[in-house]
Amino acid sequence: MTIARLRALLVDDEMLARVALRQALATHADVDVVGECGNVQEAAQAIAALSPDLLFLDIQMPGGDGFTLLRDHDATDLPLVVFTTAFANHALEAFDVNAIDYVLKPIDQARFDQAMDRVKKHWHGLQRDRRPASADGNGHYIKRISVQTDERSVVIPVADIDWVRADDNYVRIHVGSHSYLHRETLRHLCETLDPNHFLRIHRSIVVNMNRIREVHTLFQGHAEVVLHDGTRLDLSRRFRNAARLALGIR
């Protein structure tokens, strides 16, 4: 499987710090720098406009710090984050907001490369989650799911499923006015559903494309999918390009 290139956004109020980041990234040919920002406000606009996969983020900047930027965004819709800062005392807080790594300035190339190894492991995992896999590797996908409820099993034709949401190590399968809790991870279920009919629109949501009525672009870069029954579901920025292609949206 070909892994997509990482698209990175550099956020630091010091131009020399951004130059140092570019130099450190020069040895990583699979990363493209798509933009640079000098403050939190610019970064918020750039994230919405550019949909980067990776964010190199300073902490102390004019007009707000890096933590403010992250807390103002939906955590499930953020790029991968590596903090790059001259201050060592924020490391615990950085990992509380699910940063991949925390690199101190001035940047040491070996330490930076270690951070990039972590980034790429996470990125490769995300790409595997989005791949068009099949149940048996021969293009054969499941037609029915058997869900245990109380003392009986309910057999659900896959074509009847409207949408599915992850619930820890379970999934909640929505079929019309009913929903069923099924012991299976969303990742594994995605591998068994036909990608010509089912689309992942969020880290925790898969939807039957035949049920989609509309796609709405909302304020501050947010978007949603509206189903024929009126159900509204978040369309994550990470999955937006794939959704456009699958749904034929220009």
Results as ranks from 00 to 15, higher is better:
102 Y>Q: 04
102 Y>W: 02
102 Y>M: 02
102 Y>P: 04
102 Y>G: 05
102 Y>K: 02
103 V>W: 04
104 L>H: 01
104 L>R: 04
104 L>K: 05
104 L>T: 07
105 K>E: 08
105 K>M: 07
105 K>W: 08
106 P>W: 08
107 I>K: 11
107 I>V: 15
107 I>W: 12
108 D>M: 08
108 D>F: 12
108 D>Y: 12
108 D>A: 09
108 D>C: 10
109 Q>W: 00
109 Q>Y: 02
110 A>N: 06
110 A>R: 15
110 A>V: 11
111 R>I: 07
111 R>S: 06
111 R>P: 11
111 R>T: 15
111 R>V: 15
111 R>K: 15
112 F>I: 05
112 F>P: 09
112 F>T: 05
113 D>Q: 15
113 D>K: 12
113 D>E: 14
114 Q>A: 14
114 Q>M: 13
114 Q>Y: 10
114 Q>W: 03
114 Q>I: 05
114 Q>V: 11
114 Q>P: 05
114 Q>L: 15
115 A>K: 05
115 A>C: 11
115 A>E: 08
115 A>Q: 06
116 M>E: 11
116 M>G: 11
116 M>A: 10
117 D>K: 13
117 D>Y: 11
117 D>E: 15
117 D>C: 10
117 D>T: 14
118 R>T: 04
118 R>Y: 05
118 R>F: 00
118 R>C: 00
118 R>M: 07
118 R>A: 06
119 V>I: 04
119 V>L: 04
119 V>S: 05
119 V>Y: 01
119 V>W: 02
120 K>V: 04
120 K>N: 09
120 K>W: 10
121 K>F: 03
121 K>R: 14
122 H>C: 07
122 H>M: 09
122 H>W: 08
122 H>I: 05
122 H>D: 04
123 W>T: 00
123 W>A: 01
123 W>I: 00
124 H>L: 10
124 H>M: 13
124 H>D: 13
124 H>E: 12
125 G>C: 03
125 G>W: 02
125 G>E: 13
125 G>I: 04
125 G>P: 06
126 L>F: 00
126 L>H: 01
126 L>D: 00
126 L>Q: 02
127 Q>R: 08
127 Q>T: 00
127 Q>F: 01
127 Q>C: 07
127 Q>I: 04
128 R>Y: 10
128 R>S: 15
128 R>N: 11
129 D>P: 01
129 D>K: 11
129 D>W: 02
129 D>S: 13
130 R>K: 13
130 R>Y: 03
131 R>F: 06
131 R>H: 11
131 R>I: 14
132 P>S: 04
132 P>L: 01
132 P>V: 01
132 P>I: 00
132 P>Q: 05
132 P>N: 08
133 A>K: 04
133 A>Y: 06
133 A>P: 02
134 S>C: 08
